[in-house]
Design a binder for these strands. Structure first.
Lengths: 346, 346
DNA sequence: CAAATAAATGCAAACGGTTGTCTAAAATGA
DNA sequence: TCATTTTAGACAACCGTTTGCATTTATTTG
């Protein structure tokens, strides 16, 4: 059996409470006693039992991370590692641990969140998405547990801490970027449209079109989820339109890669025939050929700030529920070009 | 305060122990009582306090994941999400939680492992790498905690459960694949050579060369870590060799992408001028242009099997320490071609 | 129908810490 | 020197479960 505080106490001829206070370096204990106890701890190889401490202190120093349903989707998307890196960095600074949900359906994830929260396994939660009809966030509100969401919540935004980009603005800027290059037929390709981030980007896209008095065509707005075969279909649909788009805004750079692949199969060259702006600026956009013009959403920072939010909130549950907007910046690479105006690429 | 077992007991007019037994659905409790107690639990919104249970049962149903030093490296590599997905899948099946290390130096990771293990926060551990002079594995052995490593341990392999590809073999096959295409000057580019996986692959590579009576040239063996600027340098070094390589085996497909980019800058075409085989077959190799011939290491399976190992080991600490080898398969795509023999590509 | 057996529940001691309160000893001051 | 304050540490209750054992209640059996 592992050595406990009592064993140490006995050997050091002090009471367990004294040992406990030595551990927390309480100033009620003399230096002399501390030294003695510490030495005994060392000798016996004592290490605190975390669970026992948690039980009384009611603080686990752990935050739970809730992924989108389908761990597989979430994990495939290079967004995930990057946001995790940010979360992880701040957690490490503050000596917090990270606990991950593992479920692969919306329901099983929800159950895991309940287990995390009610089972008091975590002090706070970060939700990595914002989605219509999501049950996790309402649940967290009801449980009154500190949490932050990455993405813009759909309601009660004043009660919720969130970290997000200004996706409307970012998408608007991307669209205008293309418009300024002379493009008039711009398509928007999202991934799962249930997520708020996609809605925002569609809004920004449409705003820009309207602002520049371009027609908003529903046919130009498409979606496909990573990993599905839909990428091909989407491209086909767009190319069979009478007025084919000459530029695309694609909501994730993995998806952009898929699209570029489909285009190249059809001898449509990027950026000569088609301009593309992707979102996220992950490693993929840097290394693709041609390297993509991409909106850097600063995913790492998103994660970092989110964990900062929750951890601060854990420290002071009554704190003002601020939200933070992480600026985006267009990384101009080689998938965008001036529209030459012949409009015929095949 | 949250509702406890005692509150439920009081309200249901039973003893706490009865409630506890209802929770575990013990057959010592009558159906009638169970129904009554369950209803009260429902009414009061009872949920078990996990930490209290852990304290007495000494089982956390959590496994800890140890990443390479530098979370950033680990997370950037698409290997990580994929292996995590596999781990996560099995953990979910068995109702285990996942706890992640967050440290970014070898030392801080080690400390976190100690905290996890001695603090009894995890029942078992998965180490995502095997590395020379690593202190984590020896520590885990000493602590006698169930663990598995992904990769081949450097010593005491009989005492350690591990899950790995046969990297020697895989690399040998890759090399022979290229040899059969007529290549004679084949370069091997690894990432961090401290990791056993790279050593194994180098060995396999050299074995194949020897088998086919090709010269083993140290100059052809290079390494660079993802994210560093070294990719460029490595390519330059190889190209400035008097006998330039005509094919490359690259130990991670992100790295292959970097190399391909550098080659294309120098107007060296893949596969016409240079054949490339990468390792891992992540999404990157599928979507790159041209799509890469890649060794599928079945990363997901690696993770899945590893968690299976630990979880079984947790169930029976005395079990036979088997190891599992996940087969690899060459995914033949478009970065490899027959060597034309003129040997001049620039 | 009483005795024996089986089934259902309660009691109380853990698990390994923390923490408020109390006491003895040391330090201070008059 | 003695009363008073301060300091260091001990005591014991508690955190929310689980679990071996004792006890009560129900059931079976001779």
């Amino acid at each position: 059996m592992a050595v406990t505080i009592k064993d140490v106490a006995k050997r050091a001829n002090v009471s367990p409470s004294t040992v406990s206070r030595v551990i927390t370096d309480s100033n009620k204990i003399s230096e002399k006693t501390k030294r003695k106890v510490r030495q005994v701890m060392e000798e016996m190889g004592y290490h605190i039992n975390f669970n026992a401490r948690v039980l009384v202190q009611k603080s686990t120093q752990t935050i739970g991370i809730v992924m989108k349903h389908s761990a597989s989707h979430s994990l495939h998307n290079p967004f995930f590692p990057e946001v995790l890196r940010g979360i992880s960095a701040f957690c490490h600074e503050k000596d917090y641990s990270i606990s991950l949900t593992t479920g692969n359906s919306e329901k099983s994830i929800f159950n895991e969140v309940v287990k995390m929260v009610q089972g008091r396994r975590v002090d706070g939660v970060i939700v990595l998405y914002s989605k219509k009809d999501d049950k996790v966030v309402p649940y967290l509100i009801k449980q009154n547990i500190p949490f932050a969401v990455i993405g813009k919540p759909l309601s009660e935004t004043n009660k919720i801490m969130y970290v997000d980009n200004d996706n409307v603005q970012a998408s608007k800027e991307a669209t205008e970027f293309l418009i300024k290059l002379g493009h008039q037929r711009i398509s928007f390709i999202g991934d799962d449209p249930e997520f708020q981030v996609i809605q925002d980007r569609i809004n920004g896209y449409q705003e820009a079109l309207k602002l520049h008095e371009l027609e908003v065509t529903e046919d130009y707005i498409k979606s496909f989820e990573y990993g599905t075969a839909n990428g091909k279909q989407v491209v086909e649909e767009l190319l069979s339109l009478p007025e084919k788009p000459t530029a695309m805004i694609i909501s994730a750079d993995v998806n952009a890669l898929v699209v570029m692949k489909e285009l190249s199969k059809r001898d449509i060259y990027v950026p000569k025939d088609m301009s593309i702006i992707s979102f996220n600026n992950t490693i993929i956009s840097q290394l693709s050929t041609p390297p993509m013009t991409s909106i850097d959403t600063q995913t790492y920072q998103l994660g970092y700030e989110a964990s900062k939010c929750v951890i601060e909130l854990i420290g002071d549950p009554e704190m003002f529920k601020r939200s933070v907007i992480i600026p985006t910046v267009i990384e101009n690479r080689e998938t965008t070009a001036i529209y030459k105006g012949n409009g015929k690429y095949n």
